[in-house]
Each structure stands twice: as structure tokens, then as C-alpha cells.
Amino acid sequence: MLVCGLLSSCAPSATEPGIAADTAGPLSRAQAESLVEEPLADLATSVSERADEYAQLSEDGAATVQRTEAGCEYVSTVYHSTLPVDGEGWGALADAVRPQMEAWAMDTGALDREERATGAGLRGTNPHNGAALSVQTWNDHLGVDLDGPTEGLEMAVRVPLAQSECD
């Protein structure tokens, strides 16, 4: 029993969202913010601690509402890292984001695919409300096009919003 307790205390944790992860969408902006923002901030900290040689994520853009072809969506606070990521790094990042994706009721099947290291990144979507986490390559800080290894990451969550939120 003691060993089990010790193991679970070392296991990566997740922050429960402010609303039930299985809340049906489309969501209001307030619901989307409650679902995403606190857990995402905690995830950025957790990833930076657990995969520190591949990511030191910092806040780099406030949450917004953007128009889409289907209506509009909530785009969370954006987090960036400028550290290089290799194939091993993508595995470490996948392990670091998995618990939070599960807390958000997102599919985690893409975390184990090899193509994540070739630009597909880490992605998952909640089937109930469409919230989608994306951890992908980000090289904008370099100022030049890069043909080779990733030199940075971008992490954000997008959530489809109710039509009334688009006005």
C-alpha cells in the first residue's frame, strides 16, 4: 500500500478543468475559459519541469476569440518555447501532456504516433465540445525559414464557441 502511494505521488498529475470535461459544445466563452485556462497554465509549468531540456514554455499571447468558417472559436493563452526538440524530446513531451489531455477527455492516440516528430506535433480533441490541444513546432522567433530540426514549440487550445459568442 505504501509503495502504491509513493508511486502515485510521483506520477504526473493533471489539473481538473473548471467545468466538466464532457460538457457538450458549443461552449460559451466563459465556459471555454473555465475549461482551458487554469489547466493549461499548470500544464505549461508541468511540461517545463518534466521535459525541461526540450521545453521551457512561457506565456506569449493572451486568449482571444477568432472567427472561423464555421463561426468562431476561443483560442487560449498561447505558450512558446525556443528550445530545440528531437525525436526523444517529442516522446518526453507526449508523456508530459498525456495526463492533462486525459483530464480534458481528449483522445490521446496521436501521442504515440511516430509522425509527431516530423511536424505533426501532439494533438488531441475532446469529442464532447471540440476543445483541441495542439503542441506543435514553432520557429517564428528565428526570423528565417528552417529546414531541419525544430527550434521551438507552440502550445494552445482551441474551443468552438456558440454562435452567440461570435457577435
Rank of each mutant, 00 (worst) to 15 (best):
A44Y: 11
T118N: 10
T150M: 01
L111K: 01
G119S: 11
R123K: 06
E115F: 06
C10E: 00
V75M: 02
R113G: 10
G148Q: 01
L153N: 06
T45G: 15
A41R: 02
D107E: 14
H141L: 11
A24G: 13
V159A: 07
R123W: 05
G148K: 01
S46G: 11
L142A: 13
A96F: 04
E102I: 06
G61H: 14
E73L: 07
G89R: 03
L93Q: 01
G109P: 00
S81L: 02
L93F: 08
T108H: 00
E69M: 02
E88Q: 06
L93T: 05
S28Q: 00
V65I: 15
R113H: 13
E154S: 15
R158M: 13
W90D: 02
E38A: 15
A32V: 09
E73N: 05
R116Q: 14
M101L: 08
T68F: 11
V135C: 08
A103V: 14
A105C: 08
Y74G: 14
G119M: 07
Y54S: 07
G152S: 04
E114H: 05
E33A: 13
P99A: 13
D112F: 03
L2T: 13
T82F: 05
P149C: 08
E37Y: 01
C72Q: 10
L40I: 05
P17A: 11
R116Y: 04
L57Q: 04
V36P: 10
P99V: 10
R98N: 08
I19M: 11
A70L: 12
A132G: 06
P149V: 03
H128Y: 15
E151F: 13
R50H: 10
P160A: 12
D145E: 15
E33F: 03
P127G: 09
L27Q: 06
V65N: 03
E33K: 03
N129M: 11
Q66C: 00
Y79R: 03
L2R: 10
R67N: 14
Q100G: 05
G61K: 03
D107S: 14
R98I: 04
C4F: 13
P160H: 06
L43H: 00
P99K: 05
A131Q: 07
V157N: 09
A94E: 10
T137H: 12
L35F: 10
A70R: 07
A11H: 06
V75G: 05
S13N: 13
Q56E: 15
M101Q: 04
A62S: 15
C166E: 13
G121M: 08
D145N: 11
G119N: 12
A51V: 10
A96N: 03
Y74I: 13
H128V: 03
L161S: 11
